[in-house]
């Protein structure tokens, strides 16, 4: 169940998180940081899906689903706040 291809893909996805972290810390404006957080969460969800297959356990799928939903809601809320100045 553990192949070289899965290890390589996991490695590259972990590497893909690094520019997101750089953009979160360095980002000149707030929309840059919001987009970076959204991209990083998407990568982490993909990592959890592959890691769930590698470990042969379904427990990581719950974590991935919760993380995806909370990231979606947070991104929409911050976008609306940046766009209009109010949340509701």
């Amino acid at each position: 169940m553990n192949s070289l291809l899965l290890d390589i893909s996991l490695t590259f996805m972990i590497i893909a998180i690094i520019p997101c972290i750089y953009r979160i810390i360095k980002g000149p404006t707030i929309p840059d940081r919001v987009i970076a957080v959204d991209a990083m969460t998407t990568v982490i969800v993909a990592v959890l899906g592959i890691y769930s297959y590698v470990q042969g356990s379904v427990f990581f799928m719950d974590v991935a689903l919760v993380l995806a939903v909370i990231s979606f809601i947070g991104t929409i809320t911050i976008s609306k706040y940046l766009d209009e100045g109010v949340v509701f």
């Binding site: 939903v69 909370i70 809601i73 929409i76 809320t77 609306k80 949340v87 509701f88």
Partner: peptide, 9 residues
């Protein structure tokens, strides 16, 4: 969180 999403949207 989903009720908060409904409030926001």
């Amino acid at each position: 969180s989903v009720i908060a999403l409904m409030y926001v949207v």
